[in-house]
Design a protein around this nucleic acid. Structure first.
Lengths: 223, 223, 223, 223
DNA sequence: AATGAATGAGGCTTCATTCAT
DNA sequence: CATGAATGAAGCCTCATTCAT
C-alpha cells in the first residue's frame, strides 16, 4: 500500500557534469544574481540550485553552507580589489611639471578614482550586493565587506595625502575626505539603481571629481 | 535558541498593564533597538517581546505582523521627516544683503544641512536602520524608506537650485549634487559607526559643508 | 496564482493545552516508547510528535534537539538509580547472628540484587533503551549511560567487598565479580526480550543468585 | 562535514586496481573498523570509501547498499562461528575417568568456553560491533546477529546439558545458565572496553569459569 | 489587556545512491 | 575496474503566527 513509485516518470532534468572549478564558478555566478534579486535572507538555497539547474546537494559539495557561498562571493571580490589597488602605480613625483595645468590634474584624479571604482563595480550585481544586501550577515561576511571598504578608503586616503603634500590639494583630514568622496559616489550609484536609471560610471566619476575638486560655490562668492 | 523555553522554570514575570497607545509606543521603541542590534531578518519576534517584557500574543494585538512593526517604525520616521522639512522656511530672498560674506553662507548651509539630517538621525538606532538594515524587505517597507530618501534628496535639491539661481552656487545638476552631498555625509556616519568611532554630527556637517562648498583643490592650483 | 489556501479544511486536530511540566513529561514518555520501538537513529522527531499528538515545534519548546530528549530520558533514570541506591541501608553487621543459615544469606542477596535491578528496570522500555539502543550516541548521552552502569556496578562491588570481609563470600576481585553478575542478569533479560519471552525479574534474580552463590558444579565433584 | 569537498583541491589520489575478491575483502575490513569507531548509523559511506581509498561508486560495485556491507560483515562472522562450533568434538564419554579430578574439569571448561569465545571475538572490532553497534538495524542484520547469539548459546547449552547428565554439573535450567554465563563474560569484556582497560580473554575466561563452577560463597558458609 | 503554549510551513543540510566518464 | 560529480528524499530545526485561558 502506497509504495513509493520507484522511478518517477517526470522528465527528471538531464544531469550535466562539469569540472569542479567550472561548476563552482557557475554556482557563484548564479548565487550572486539570486542574492541580488531577492536579498541574502529572502533568497533560499533552493532558488540558487533551481536557477543553476543543479540538485540541492550539489551546491553543498562546493560550499559548506549558504553563508559560505556569500562569503566566497565577497572574498573573490576582496581579492580582486586588493590586486587592482596594488597594481596602481604610486602617485609619485607628479606626472608633469610641478606647475601642472588644472585639466591635467582633473584628468588624473578622474582616472585614479575610476580605477578604484572599477575594481569593485565589476557588475551591477556585485555592486548592489556590496552596497546593500551583504550587510548584517553574522560575522565573517561582514568582515570581508568591511575589508573591501577599508581597502578602497585607504587607497583613496593615501592618494589624497600625497596630493596634499604636493600642494595640489588643500589641507584637511584625508580620512574624512576619502569617506566623503566615496560615499558621494556610492550614493549616486545607489540612487540611480533604486530609480532604475542607468548607472553610468563615467559621468558619475565626472561629477564627483568636479564637485570634489572645485566645490559648488561660485567663484565670485568665494572671493 | 533564543526562543524562551519552559524548561528552566522562570519566575513567570509579573504582568504589567499599559494604556494601548503607551504599549504600542513601547513596543516600537524596543523593536527599533532589536532590529538595529540584530538586523531585521535575524531579529525575531520573540526577541522583541522578551526585551519588551511582554508575551508574544501581546505584540500581535498591536501589530498585524512582524513586517507591520518595521513599517510603523519607518512611517513614523517618514512623517517626522516630512513635517520637519515642511517646517523649514524657504531660502527666500537671501538672509542678508546680496553681497553676503562667505562665512554667512557657510553658516547658513551648515544650519540648513543640519536641519535635514536631524530630521532623520534622531538617534543612532534609527540611523543604522535607515542606512543599512531596512533595505531589501519585500515591498512596502522598502517603499517607505525610499520615500524618506526621496524627501531628503528633494529638499536638498530644492535648496541647491534656489542657491544656484541666487548665484551663490555654481551651475551643475542639482539632483546629482544633492545625492553626492547626502551620500558623503551618510558614508561618514556609517564608517564612523562601523569603526565604533563616536558619531559627531556637528563636525561631520562641518567637514561636509566645507568640502562641498570649496572643494579640495588648493587656491594656487585652481588659478 | 497558486495562492496557498489560507484555511486548510482538513480536520486539523484540535489543539490541547497542557501545563508545561505535564507536557514535558508526556513527551518524554512518548519519546521513550518511540525510541525503543524504532531505535534512536531510525526514530525521527516527527514520529514522536505524531504519537504525542503535538506539532513538531512544540517538542522544541521543551527540548533543544532530538539528542536532548534522549539525554533527558537518561538523566531522569540516572537520578532515580542514584537515589534508590543511596537509600539502601549499608549491609552492616549482618542481619542475624554471625552463623546465619544459608537460606538467610540467599534471601538477603536476592533482595539486595532485586533492589538494584528495580532501580533501572522500571519498565521494559527503559530497559531496552539502556541495554541496547542508547549506546553510541555522540558524547553526552553515552556518558550518562556509562554513569548509570557505573552506579550499579559500584553498588554491587561495595556489597561484595563487605560480604567478603564478613567471610560470607570467597576471595576474588569484587569488581570483576560485580561485572560478571550484572552481565549475567542483563543477558538473561535481553535474551528473553529478544525471544519475546516474558521478562520475569523474580525468577531471573532467583537463578542469578543461586548460580552466583553456589556455582554449577555438583557437590560430589567439588570435593 | 565529512563529505569530501572539491573545494580544497586534493592531488586526486592515484587509482589502484585490485582483484575483485581482494577489493571486497579490503572494503569489508575497512568498513568494520569504521562502523566500530563511529557506529553504524553515524558512520557514512563516504567515511568508508575515504578510508579504503576508493571512490564512492566502487563500493557500490561490490555491495548493493550500506546495509549489505554490514550484513556481509555479520554473515562472515556467523559462518565462522558456526564452523568453529561444529568443529568442536562433542563432550562425549568424559575425557578421563569418571572420577576426574576437579582441576581437570576446570581446565576442560576453560578450554571449551575459550573456543566458543574465540569464534566470535576474532578481534576487538568485531566484538564491539556484535555487542553494541549492530543492534537495532532494521530487519536482516538484526537476524544475523541474533543467529550468532543463538549459535553460541546453543553450543553452551548443549555442553551444559551433557555435563549435567554426566553428573559433573548440578541440575538447573541449562538455557538460563548458558545465558547467564555468556552474559557475564560479555559484560566483563564490554566494561573493560568502555573503561579502556586491556581486554585479556584469558583471565576473563579464568574468572568466569571459576565463578561459574564454584560460586562465590565461602566453603564454611555453604555447609 | 495580556499571556505563552501550540502550531506547521518552510528553510537548511546530510547522505545513500546513481551514472557518465 | 574505478571514479566522483550529481542527485533528491528525508531529516532536523526555526519562527511568525494563532488561540484558549
Amino acid at each position: 500500500m502506497s509504495v513509493p513509485r520507484p522511478k518517477s516518470r517526470q522528465p527528471r532534468r538531464q544531469r550535466t557534469y562539469l569540472r569542479a572549478d567550472v561548476r563552482r564558478a557557475q554556482i557563484l555566478d548564479v548565487a550572486k544574481r539570486v542574492f541580488v534579486r531577492r536579498g541574502y535572507h529572502v533568497a533560499n538555497v533552493a532558488d540558487i540550485c533551481k536557477e543553476a539547474r543543479i540538485g540541492r546537494g550539489t551546491l553543498y559539495q562546493y560550499f559548506d553552507n549558504k553563508q559560505a557561498v556569500m562569503l566566497a562571493l565577497m572574498e573573490e571580490l576582496a581579492t580582486r580589489v586588493a590586486s587592482v589597488l596594488d597594481a596602481r602605480p604610486p602617485i609619485g613625483p607628479l606626472p608633469g611639471a610641478s606647475k601642472a595645468p588644472v585639466e591635467m590634474i582633473v584628468g588624473f584624479c578622474r582616472k585614479r578614482l575610476r580605477e578604484v571604482l572599477d575594481a569593485v563595480f565589476v557588475d551591477e550585481a556585485t555592486l548592489r550586493l556590496i552596497l546593500r544586501d551583504a550587510r548584517g550577515l553574522d560575522g565573517t561576511v561582514d568582515e570581508v565587506i568591511a575589508t573591501i571598504d577599508r581597502l578602497m578608503l585607504r587607497a583613496m586616503e593615501r592618494d589624497i595625502k600625497i596630493a596634499q603634500e604636493l600642494r595640489l590639494l588643500r589641507k584637511g583630514n584625508p580620512r574624512l575626505i576619502a569617506r566623503y568622496l566615496l560615499g558621494g559616489v556610492e550614493k549616486m550609484v545607489l540612487t540611480a539603481l533604486a530609480n532604475d536609471e542607468p548607472v553610468d560610471l563615467d559621468s558619475i566619476v565626472e561629477v564627483a571629481v568636479e564637485l570634489e575638486l572645485f566645490g559648488i560655490l561660485t567663484e565670485e562668492v568665494r572671493r
